[in-house]
Design a protein around this nucleic acid. Structure first.
Lengths: 158, 158
DNA sequence: CTAGATTTGTTCCAAATGGAACAGTATTGA
DNA sequence: TCAATACTGTTCCATTTGGAACAAATCTAG
């Protein structure tokens, strides 16, 4: 007898749950992304909203804080705080919009881009660990399906 | 001229990002799950860990707090807090394990199951809103791919 | 033209969160 | 046998989080 205490099958819930597609999607997302947030906090001293801000600015010429809030679906005050901290650390710069006194355009700096590249390496590696289980044609198929889903989700009312 | 302020294409990042599969997976997961957490807090007065606990117990005969922590990949103290609040509200019951004085077995109550059913209705609806964009064969294909991914993710070291 | 409504970014505050240390129990191995 | 180690659940505490209210700027309708 090798194992007196039979381990519980933690994956039973994957298909028992009432919303199995959403559940598994969330589970996979958490397996890839969530542990990385801890790495990012420990190694780069950025909290989640700060990293989201960095990620967005790395892929758009310029954005307002409100743009980032909408893209990431996070509250404006979290983004506001993140902007201030990232400004302090010179990972981005802010230019008031001359045509609209309420808002300011945010741009990433060289230092910010460098930081982003380092953090991305973590996530690229983590993505590979999970998604490499699929073969080439499965991966292509998944990309197509995720593309449709993400696009559709983006169009939904919040 | 209909729109002087051209909207930014918030979906550009979907394929520009360095880890597009992980990014879109996370985005879709958040689109389904995250807004629901707010509903659950407002309408049912449960925080995230409490809901996770309820969800797990709804699908297993009995679990220890540690089991739930591992299944959901959440810290033990969050689960501990959740257990106490859910006990107060009689959504679960706790029986000390006679064979191991450290742990206690948790079971969901009738009231807990009822609550779970109500909350699930939200998530089933939300899942449909997103995933119904796929046709039948796409949906079947996605289920297969997500099954592989989730299973693989569950086997990975944390 | 202008009063009301809307938008952006901010501050305040209460609540949620998670790491660390801890006590009690169980297991291991010399 | 029993000391060292590991595990479960808990408390403590510092940090993160997000709703609400707000000021300032802009837009809208009459």
């Amino acid at each position: 007898m090798t194992n007196l205490k039979p381990a519980i099958d933690f994956t039973h819930i994957f298909d028992a749950v009432e919303f199995p597609d959403a559940y598994k999607t969330s589970y996979v997302a958490n397996a890839v992304v969530t542990p990385t947030y801890e790495d990012i906090r420990r190694d780069f001293n950025l909290v989640r909203s700060e990293y989201h801000l960095l990620l967005c600015l790395a892929h758009y010429e310029e954005l307002t804080a409100q743009d980032v809030a909408r893209m990431t679906r996070r509250p404006r005050n979290s983004i506001s705080r993140a902007v201030h901290r990232m400004l302090e650390h010179h990972f981005l710069e802010r230019v008031p919009d001359p045509t609209d006194g309420r808002q300011a355009k945010l741009k990433i700096t060289k230092a910010g881009l460098k930081l982003h590249a380092e953090i991305s390496a973590y996530l690229v590696k983590r993505e590979a660990e999970i998604f490499d289980i699929l073969d080439k044609s499965e991966r292509v198929q998944l990309q197509m399906l995720l593309g449709k889903l993400a696009q559709h989700a983006a169009e939904l009312e919040r």
